[in-house]
Write a protein that binds this DNA or RNA. Structure first.
Length: 256
DNA sequence: ATGGCTTCTCGTAGAAGA
């Protein structure tokens, strides 16, 4: 089984890239998307199903929007956080091959002095509480998505430059740690990885070419799944193509 | 250097992303 996450920064623009990427990865079971930026009536359900996938989605215009694309049926689909009233569409969950897969697009926060920052922290608190409940019901659980948190300085191309900024602030990192404390494992760090491994690179200033990036997209696994995890990789190829998303996909492989 | 790119909108400039 393989579980992946990819912030596509507009599915309208990136759908051909997503379908091509999936076609090249026949072993992939389920892909969580973030920033689809599409209302449900405009979601390309027919195209994705015609390509042979199951799909679930919840979105809005311009911002946010999440989806799950799967080769196995999506059961017990949950839309949005049940414990946080929020017009923004940031969470979708389903059970896939017996695994509870939660796809999340965590609030960016914009800046520490922005009103979006306390929203980010409160939203994360609700996520932590809900995922804790989900873990009691589902031993096999994967929390994946764009967390908008670089957990450690090694996940940041230039920690000094980012110090005191959103995505690396201690309150955000504490909440990431609280997710781990629920019993989740950052699958990427189960394995030896190249130094300066990132999942997002700024469109500006040739960020990708300079590898000026952050590792903010994650696949967190409950312990029973972490024990089965044999690999976790960032696929940088989709970041090299014409008109790419600014994020690359992250893929975790689980042995049967 | 408070920018730099890319996306979106009851659009053609401004907001937001990270």
């Amino acid at each position: 089984m393989q579980i992946a996450t990819w912030n596509v920064n507009s599915l309208k623009v990136r759908l051909p890239q997503v379908l091509e990427w999936l076609a090249g990865r026949p072993e992939l079971t389920v892909l969580a998307l973030q920033e689809t930026k599409l209302e449900d009536h405009a979601f390309p359900k027919a195209e994705i199903e015609a390509a042979g996938f199951h799909v679930a989605y919840v979105g809005q215009k311009t911002y946010n929007g999440v989806a799950l694309i799967s080769r196995a049926p999506l059961l017990d689909v949950q839309y949005n956080l049940p414990n946080y009233e929020d017009p923004q569409k940031r969470v979708i969950a389903a059970t896939v091959d017996g695994v509870r897969v939660i796809g999340a697009y965590v609030v960016n926060g914009q800046a520490l002095d922005s009103e979006k920052y306390p929203y980010k922290l409160a939203w994360l608190d609700a996520l932590i509480a809900w995922v804790g409940e989900q873990l009691q019901q589902h031993g096999k659980l994967a929390l994946v998505g764009d967390f908008n948190i670089a957990p450690e300085d090694r996940d940041v191309h230039d920690p000094a430059k980012w110090a005191g900024d959103v995505l690396v602030s201690p309150p955000e990192r504490e909440r990431f740690q609280q997710l781990l404390d629920l019993g989740l494992v950052d699958s990427f760090r189960l394995f030896e990885q190249a130094e300066k491994s990132f999942t997002w690179w700024d469109y500006r200033m040739m960020g990708f070419r300079r590898n000026a990036g952050l590792r903010i997209d994650h696949v967190l696994l409950s312990r029973p799944l972490a024990e089965r995890c044999t690999a976790c990789e960032v696929d940088k190829e989709p970041r090299r193509v014409e008109r790419p998303s600014d994020h690359a996909p992250v893929i975790a492989t689980l042995a049967e």
